[in-house]
Simulated scan of single mutants.
Amino acid sequence: MPKPPDRIDRRILQALVADGRLTNNELAERVGLSASPCWQRVRRLERDGFIQGYTAVLDQSLLGATETVIIEVTLERHDDEILEVFGRAMAEMPEVLEVYLTTGEYDYFVKVAVNGTAGYEAFLRTKLYKVPGIRHSRSSFALRCLKRTHSIVPDEE
């Protein structure tokens, strides 16, 4: 089991969450280390799984997916086969940004990016409603994103 990140590790993680394109020298300067120890810490954080990868954040509206829709999905049953089929189907749909198994009234929270209401209707008809085992879904269109982040670095306890 990896050791918990210390104060400097947390500063490294916070800096990388804010800007994953920092060079090692820039990162080292921001967190108050020299380049070599900073590089070693980043490699350890990657190896231990604290850093799972790096990605570009795209403007989906400029790419033609102008709407974000939140879909709450209820399944007919909760056996392993239905859960597996649903999970595999969600992973294969490029419009699907995030999927969460949840507690409460609905089984899943699904976030999709589509091109307007026509794009959403096409997504429902040709993809989502073709997935076996869905009993009910409810959708909400996002009007505006007030905050978007992909990770947090919790305070030390």
Rank of each mutant, 00 (worst) to 15 (best):
P2A: 15
P5S: 06
D6K: 02
R7K: 08
R11A: 11
Q14S: 14
L16Y: 07
V17F: 01
D19Q: 01
D19H: 00
G20N: 12
N24H: 13
E26H: 00
E26Y: 03
L27N: 04
L27P: 03
E29R: 12
S36C: 00
W39K: 15
R43I: 10
R44Q: 15
G49K: 08
Q52E: 13
Q52M: 14
G53N: 05
Y54S: 04
T55W: 06
D59W: 03
D59P: 01
G64M: 09
E67A: 15
T68S: 13
V69K: 02
I70W: 03
I71T: 15
T74M: 09
R77E: 03
H78A: 09
E81C: 02
E84F: 06
V85M: 07
V85T: 11
F86L: 05
F86V: 01
V96C: 06
Y100P: 01
T103G: 06
G104C: 06
Y108L: 10
Y108A: 13
F109R: 08
K111T: 08
A113V: 09
V114C: 03
V114W: 03
A118W: 05
E121D: 10
E121A: 07
E121P: 00
A122R: 13
F123N: 05
K127C: 08
L128A: 02
Y129G: 11
P132R: 13
G133Q: 01
R135A: 14
H136D: 15
R138N: 13
S140H: 09
A142E: 06
C145S: 12
L146D: 07
L146Q: 02
K147Y: 10
I152C: 05
V153N: 10
V153W: 06
D155W: 05
